[in-house]
Nucleic acid binder design. Structure first.
Lengths: 237, 237
DNA sequence: ACAAAAGTGTTGCGCCTACACCCATGA
DNA sequence: TCATGGGTGTAGGCGCAACACTTTTGT
């Protein structure tokens, strides 16, 4: 029963990649869904996905697929689970490697590919999806919370310049809670990851809130570190 | 470029499952490796693995494979990454879904299947492995640390009755550090997960250390919760 | 009696939360 | 000048790490 004996008569499977693309519109955490163009399940919403080609890894396939949809390269991408239930795709047995992606929704707007009839949905109110894509989204949301509770990945969702109140509203929506603004501000600034800009955003208040940029260098160096960004990370996962 | 158009001419792949089986012998964290019986790479060490069959999920396959090796069912199993580099298996393009498993090394001793020439190795000193199995082990170790820093999964490695000093030495080996025994004891007991037994283990000291059992009910209820078990979880992952 | 490991007590520091307060500015 | 959101200051408490101390018992 070692591998070699069985190389001859083993089943082969089609292998797909599905991407949960997260974005943030300034108020709500969103996911990007596409409309299926063909049967079966024509007209229904699904995740952006595709098949893994002959000479590429799942990671490469995911990047290729995301580029074809958004025009963007170098997107933050994290493999989080492989779905392999025998009956998950009724047309053909398919194994799917699921990724979640974090993109700046504004960059996406510029380079959108209209072929896919893509649309943003609030993570809390997305429509019914084909196959097991609904499960994939729910798990992706949990994994995002889990990782973001201790790593600084949520910056990937923000534009180059952003204010602390905007950052806070992002965290509040991702974790479905609210934070004390003073404590939130101090905690974020203590990471030394933010560089204060001269300009303010006055669209939300008379006083205006300072813009910040990410300290890219410091950010890259600290990606692997774990910070206590969330007060009570219990009950995540 | 939607899925359906391409259902016809997509490549299929063999899909494997590979298991990193962790055990704890009372002193060191170990992994279980098997000796390859056939070419290529005959005689080299590898992870326990096998192919996913027609009508089973990767999870089912992993459980089946682990049972064939250890005789055990209901083993703690966690999918942590899928490896899909095109050239990872030189014989045939194969995608592998990797799992790590946690077992009580004593239970294993009772029911070992000798067909596989399996052997335990210290996690820090395992031999060269075939394909990308070395990478798989390193990543599994990181994921184990990451998860165990906040979840109570390491109990899966212990026998039914265990002492606090034994538990501590397990944590110390997993995280490659040392803990203050007083603080460690308090932290563990504060979880309310341990039930003190009447007997002591006197093999390591004159005074003897009390045995504890897991409060299974409380344990199951709290599996999803996150505790701060490790003082400085920085630099994990 | 003493050595050696198990287990308990205690203290002080640091962080974090809660909440009060000040600031800037458009209307 | 007042309303509104941005931002700062601070006090209390809790948790945790460090380390001293007590307990137990085989030799």
């Amino acid at each position: 029963m070692t591998k070699d004996k069985r190389y001859q008569h083993i089943t082969k499977f089609t292998v797909a990649v599905d991407c949960i693309v997260f974005g943030f519109d300034g108020t709500r955490l969103k996911i990007l869904l596409v409309k299926r163009g063909l049967e079966p399940e024509k007209g229904k919403w699904s995740l952006m996905g595709g098949f893994v080609n002959d000479n590429e890894s799942a990671e490469t396939a995911a990047n290729r697929i995301l580029k074809s949809l958004t025009g963007l390269e170098g997107i933050y991408l994290e493999q989080y689970q492989t779905f392999s239930s025998p009956d998950r795709d009724p047309v053909q047995r398919t194994i799917s490697v699921a990724y979640f992606a974090l993109i700046d929704i504004n960059k996406y707007q510029e380079s959108i590919n209209t072929d896919f009839e893509a649309q943003w949905f609030n993570i809390k109110e997305f429509p019914q999806l084909i196959f097991d894509h609904g499960d994939m989204v729910h798990l992706a949301q949990k994994k995002l919370q889990y990782k973001a509770a201790s790593h600084t990945i949520l910056f990937e969702l923000l534009p180059e310049k952003f204010t602390l109140p905007l950052l806070q509203s992002l965290f509040e929506d991702v974790f479905d809670t609210s934070f004390d603004k003073g404590n939130f501000s101090r905690k974020m600034l203590s990471t030394k990851l933010l560089i204060k800009q001269k300009e303010k955003d006055k669209s939300n208040s008379k006083k205006g809130a300072f813009y910040y940029k990410l300290d890219k260098k410091h950010y890259q160096e600290n990606l692997h570190k774990i910070l206590k960004l969330i007060p009570n990370p219990n009950q995540l996962l």
